[in-house]
C-alpha cells in the first residue's frame, strides 16, 4: 500500500508498504530516517519515540497505515521543531529536512566529526554537555521525550523527570547524566526567559 504523511515538516510518500510494517520501519528503511531506533519493537524501551501529531508515541507500535495524513516529528527534525517552537511559528510546511536531504543520508563512521556548526535544540546540547550520551542508542527516544516534557513542564521536579522518562530504557548511563541533562536544559531554558 501507499502511505502519505508529513515528517519533520515535509510531505513524504512511501510506496509498496507491507500492511504489517510499523511507522518505525517506514521511517528507517523507506524514508532514510534511521534516527528513531529499533531496540525492542514491543513498546518496552522508548528508543523509537516520535511525536505523532505532537504526542510522543512509540513508532514501533504505530502501523504504517495509521500514520496516513498525520504529522510526525523525529529526532532528525527535533532541532528545527524546537527552533520553530521558540520562534512561535511554522507549525507545518516548508521547515525541516527536505526529502532529498533525508534520502541522502548515508552511513558515516565514528570519525571525529564534532558536528560544529550543526544547530542543536537545547535538549540535544544539554545531553552532550552533561555526558548523557554513551552508546547513544536510547538517546533519540530520550531526546524526543525530554523535549516534550520541558515543553509541558518547564520546571520539572526530579520525580517529574523520572516519571516522564520512565518509558525510555538506557543501559549505559545509569540515568544520572540523563537527569543532569534534563535539569541543565530546564535551567538554561529558564535563564533565557
Amino acid at each position: 500500500m501507499r502511505v502519505n504523511f508529513t515528517v519533520n515538516g515535509r510531505p513524504q510518500e512511501a510506496d509498496d508498504v507491507w500492511e504489517g510494517e510499523s511507522l518505525l520501519y517506514v521511517l528507517r528503511e523507506r524514508l532514510g530516517l534511521p534516527g528513531s531506533k529499533n531496540a525492542c519493537e514491543q513498546g518496552e524501551c522508548g528508543s523509537c519515540t516520535v511525536r505523532l501529531d505532537g504526542v510522543p508515541v512509540c513508532s514501533c507500535l504505530v502501523a504504517a497505515g495509521q500514520a496516513e495524513g498525520r504529522d510526525v516529528v523525529t529526532v532528525e527534525g527535533l532541532a528545527d521543531f524546537a527552533k520553530q517552537r521558540a520562534e512561535g511559528g511554522c507549525a507545518s510546511g516548508a521547515c525541516g529536512t527536505t526529502l532529498q536531504d533525508a534520502q541522502q543520508w548515508k552511513a558515516k563512521g565514528t570519525d571525529s566529526q564534532t558536528g560544529e556548526g550543526t544547530e542543536l535544540s537545547p535538549i540535544q546540547q544539554a545531553f552532550i554537555d552533561a555526558g548523557a550520551v554513551q552508546c547513544g542508542f536510547c538517546t533519540p527516544g530520550l531526546l524526543v521525550a525530554s523535549d516534550e516534557l520541558l515543553e509541558r513542564n518547564p520546571n520539572p521536579s526530579d520525580a517529574d523527570i523520572r516519571e516522564a522518562l520512565s518509558g525510555n530504557l538506557c543501559r549505559c548511563t545509569g540515568y544520572e547524566k540523563i537527569m543532569d541533562a534534563v535539569r541543565l536544559a530546564a535551567a538554561r531554558q529558564s535563564e533565557e526567559v
Partner: peptide, 13 residues
C-alpha cells in the same frame, strides 16, 4: 564526545 552531535541528531550510523 566527538560522536556526540551525530548521536543526538540521529545521524550516527
Amino acid at each position: 564526545r566527538p560522536d556526540g552531535t551525530l548521536k543526538v541528531t540521529g545521524e550516527f550510523a
